[in-house]
Each structure stands twice: as C-alpha cells, then as structure tokens.
Design a protein around this nucleic acid. Sequence first.
DNA 1: AGTTAGCACTCGAAGCACGCGAGTGCTAAC
DNA 2: GTTAGCACTCGCGTGCTTCGAGTGCTAACT
Lengths: 342, 342
Amino acid sequence: MELNERKRAILAAIIRAYAEHGEPVGSKSLCDLLDFSVSSATLRNEMSSLCELGYLEQPHTSAGRIPTVRGYKLYISDLMNRDTLSGEMKLIIDAMLDGISGETGDITARAGQILSELTGLPVITTSVMSEHDSVKKIEVIPMGRHSVLAVVVTSKGMLKNRICRVADEISPALIERFYTLCSTYIIGKPLSALSPTYLQQTVALSGSLSLMSLAADVFGMISDIKHSSLTLRGESNLFRCYSRDGEVQRAMELLSQKDVMLSLFNKVTSPVGVLFGDDTEISELQPATLVIARYGHDGHELGKIGVIGPTRMSYDRVIPSLEYFASKMSKVITQNLTDLED
Amino acid sequence: MELNERKRAILAAIIRAYAEHGEPVGSKSLCDLLDFSVSSATLRNEMSSLCELGYLEQPHTSAGRIPTVRGYKLYISDLMNRDTLSGEMKLIIDAMLDGISGETGDITARAGQILSELTGLPVITTSVMSEHDSVKKIEVIPMGRHSVLAVVVTSKGMLKNRICRVADEISPALIERFYTLCSTYIIGKPLSALSPTYLQQTVALSGSLSLMSLAADVFGMISDIKHSSLTLRGESNLFRCYSRDGEVQRAMELLSQKDVMLSLFNKVTSPVGVLFGDDTEISELQPATLVIARYGHDGHELGKIGVIGPTRMSYDRVIPSLEYFASKMSKVITQNLTDLED
DNA sequence: AGTTAGCACTCGAAGCACGCGAGTGCTAAC
DNA sequence: GTTAGCACTCGCGTGCTTCGAGTGCTAACT
C-alpha cells in the first residue's frame, strides 16, 4: 500500500526524532515537529494506522512509537534527504584522506581509523580477494646466512613481507634460481590461480629443498594477502550502539570473528547498503546496523568499508558521508596505484 | 608492625577467597577455608585487627572484609606461593610460542595475542626504544618509475617498510648513490643518534632532491620504529575487570591513549611488577591492576608485556605465568635474532 | 468524511516500607 | 587467649502505591 504525503511526513519526523533522542515518540511531542499543524488526536490516528501497516511499533501500550526496520527501509529508499552532505564535510574528508600513501592495505586501515574518528562509530574495512589482482613483484633480500626477507607486491598495491629461513646457505645463485622460478610460475599470475595445488604441481619440480621452502613461504604470503581482509577501528565506540548490560561484550566478541563479519559484508552488493541487525540471524547484532560502502579502483571492487551504529542512527548523515568517503578513498588508492606505475 | 603467623594465614585465605568469588569474605565462611580450626568469633577479632592495620577493609558495616592494596602488596611480596606454575602451563606456553618467527615487532604482537587467549585478560605489549638497537640494513626495491619500496631492519630485528615517491626517475645510479649515503651515515648507527637534526646535518649535503626525500622517508621509518611501541590484544576481556556501568568504555578510551599507557609501563622497573590502579592517578584504572614483565635479548630490555586484570585477580597464577611467558618470549626472540645472524 | 476535544484506561518508572539475612562488635564465661 | 551468645547494622529483594506520559475510543464539530 502506498502511503499518502502526510503519513510519509509523519514517519520521517518520527524517525528523525527517534534518531536524535532515542526515546519513543509520542503524539504530543510529534505535533511540534511537523511543519503543518494538526492535533495530537489526528496524529494518534495516523500513527495507529502506520503501526498496522508495519512501519511503526510500540515498545508497550502506554509508550510512544518507534520505527520498525520496514519503516527505516522506506525512509532510506524514499523519504530521506539524499544530498544533505555539507560542503564542509566534503572538505574535511578530502583533507583527511589526501596525501595518504603507501600500500593499499595500509591506506585502507588508516582510512578506517579516520572514518571512525569522523563518525564516532566503529569502522570495519574488508578487502575482497579481487579476481583481477595478480602478483606484480617478488623480491628477496638476504638477511642472515640462512634467512631472507621476502616481499610480495600485487598489482592492486597489496604488500606483504616475511622473514624466511632456509636450510641451504643463501647464495646469489640460489636467489637467482628463485627469481627464475618466480617469474616463470608466479609473477603476473592472478591470485586466484595461485592455490596450494598449483604450488605442488609447479615447484615440486624444482628439486631443491630450499627453493621449495621459499616458494611455500611465498604461497603462504599470497594466501595471507587473499585473506588479510578485515580491520576494525574505533571499537570503543561500540558503546554507542548498545545500551543493555553485556551486549557490548558479546558484540565485541562477534566482531573479532573475522569470518562471520566477512560473510556479512559480502551480503551487500550495492555501492552503498544498509544491513539491519534484525535482518541477520546474528542475535548479538540485533540493536545495531551496518552501513557499508564499496571502494575500488578502475571499476573493480577492492573492498568494503562500513560503520556499525545503533539502528536509530542518523541515516541522512551517515549514508552520504560514507558514500563520499568511499569514493574519495577509491580516488586516493587509484592515485597511489598510478604513482606506482609511472 | 609485623604480622604473626595466624594473621598472615588469615589475610592470605581472604585474598584467595575474594579472588575466587569476588565477594567480601565473612568470618563464618572464612572458618572453612583455614587449615587450623578457630571459631568465627576469634576470626572476627583478628579481622578487625587486620582492618585497623590497613590490610583489610569493609565495603559497609554489615559486610565481610576485602583486601586493601596494602594487603595485596604484602601478599605478593611475602605471602603468596611463588612457584605454583604447573608443568602443564609451562608446556602450553612453550608450545604456543615455539616456532614463531618473523620480525621482532610481529613476534611481540603475536605473543600478546597468545597471552591474552591464555589468561583471558587484555594484554598490552610495549617495545622500549632500545639504546642498544641500531640500523642493520636498508634495502630499496624499485616499484614504479618514480617510486621505491624502502625496507629498514634493525639489529634487534625490528622491521619497517614504506613506499616512497621521488621526483627523479628511479635509476640504478640513484639507488647506488642512496646506498652509499646510507652506509656512510645510517647503517650501524644507534637509533638514538638518528635524530632529525642529524638528518639535516648529513643528508643536506647530498645535493639531490630525490636522495634527500628518500633519506627523509627513511628517517621517518626509523622514527616510527622508535615509537611503534604499543599493541593491545584481547580488549574484549576488559569486561572482566570492570563491573560498573560505563567503566569499561572509559577504560577502553584510556587504553587507546598510547602515551599514557607507555608512561605507566615505564613506571615498572623490576623484572615483573604489579601496578595497582589505586596507586596511579588515573581514575579510569581504579578497579584494575596491571601485571607487567620485561622481555629482552642478551640482557637488554626490548620491551614489556603486561596483562590488565581486576585488582582481585589471582596473583599466584598470573605472576608466575607472566614471568615464565616473558622469559620464553625472550628466548624466542633471541633465537630469531641469532637465526638472522648465522 | 476528516478533524478535534475529552476522557477513561494502561503500563512502566520511581519511590517507599518492610522483612530477611549475612555479618559485625561487644560482653561474659570458659 | 578463645568462644558462645546476643543485640545491632545495613544492603538487598519484595511488594505496594503513586505518578504521568501516552494511548484508544467516542462524540461533537467543520
């Protein structure tokens, strides 16, 4: 059923008031919030109707109304003001993100920190294992007589290093052979192709134990890159999402389960999406909601960045900010990648 | 005033019972906990006396007694069983830490994670800027036409890398000149000597803008190493330290202030020390207590590792565990460093 | 037909009295 | 020096009452 103009205005006003004060909105206080004047009795009728339609609910009989998830969804898709992002906020985001450089993973983590400070909410970033990412460079730096520092860089700017020990003494010849092996079997290959079975099929042929252990380490690093996908920043802000005792604790434990969060983030496919705790089967998330945006490079998604907030958060502030933030992030990453190329 | 044997036994029993149940200990329940039999009336007299001496206190008149900080200090220095660490626990710690390798910073962070899981408490690790650490190696890997990946390794196994952009096009000659510059002015120098003023005095002479900007980046990385000093793991366990509302939140915000925590850790100079929240001027720490141990290499302190727990934690479990953990950690780090050498 | 004033009703939150029980200090006897 | 006994304290949980914000319904009004 379509809502008429007045019902829509009432729903929007209730959502805004609830976001601000966090308390059920009654018919009287609602009177003052509307830009047209009707009596509280009329509002009661309208509110009761919105309840029946599933957009509002009452915590208990003698309380005001609060929005339901359905109400929020309508608000976000139809009702809210989509372009409320102030020029000031854009300037701040630009200023915070401009000039950040480094490897893509670092940039993402730091952007998460910044977004958390900007919004006062916990922020999660993920990097999807990009189908289009490939190994760009592998370097080996001798450290001791039996150890080297191996560095792997991907074409999307992900970087990983690890100190590797080998049985043989490190020699220029060994390193030379390893580089040959890498450029034959690894460099330029998409990450998705570099599975452990591929490792077995190719490197097992090389014969040398040290070469094999080095290669195994490199594959380990590549696997790390594929899965090094989740950072959490500003966790102390979790307290803004929950009020009841013990909820924050359980939520924090949930957030540390990377795989769960990752699969949650993967549910979002639109450029910017809202994932209500109520819509997930995860009880710890109940009173919270995720707002998630994609960032990327060259049209390809590199990952997602999202904030966790109370379901009653101010979507008309959070969504445009996050949208702009993610697009700026994409630009910064792209800039860094082209810097690496030229 | 010296406490007689019975008073000491009573104090110890109260501390243990309070650690276990978290509730004030009354004279009757105390009867059952002592290995000699006296009536509750006698215990009441003794407890009242221990109160006057400042080792116990009453939350309110009709409640049992709880230990004071003074009581805990006596317990830790004189009363508690110093060698309760089970062989089993040693085996577990050994198994968890053995085989960890990598750069010192990584090892420390991972050890923190492990200790947190082992104790169920939040863990903080710090690395002190070691007077005896020096730059061991600097490597530069060309990435793009105008960018390189610079890697700095110290003799204590700290590692840092960064992507640096330079104005000139990267050439073997430029890199060669940079290596010469590094080995003249940076390699082998103690970190403490590598200050920004030193940078100005030496590198400014080099003339080339690109060389200078590279060197500046390297000094930035060295400065990062000096200050990359604090990790926090297992923060969700903070809930074990605090019961009252809002305390955890304030504590979490405190813990994210690295400088404050660092100066707290620096107060501890003994191999393993206990820092009571009550003894600090930091109100957020009040109901919590830090147990901190040093780890190091070759007799030199590399940093500290400590757990945060409720003041009523079980010191006779935590202290020996931490002591053993830190010594094992030192061994692992030493092993890794010698691996790098040979 | 839609809007409004009026009114009885509901229900959670806050305040208060009260009894329970764990624990104490004190005294007198052992 | 130790113990039994006893009166006393005080926090905690329970049940009761009051208060008020907010509702739904009805009847009158435009």
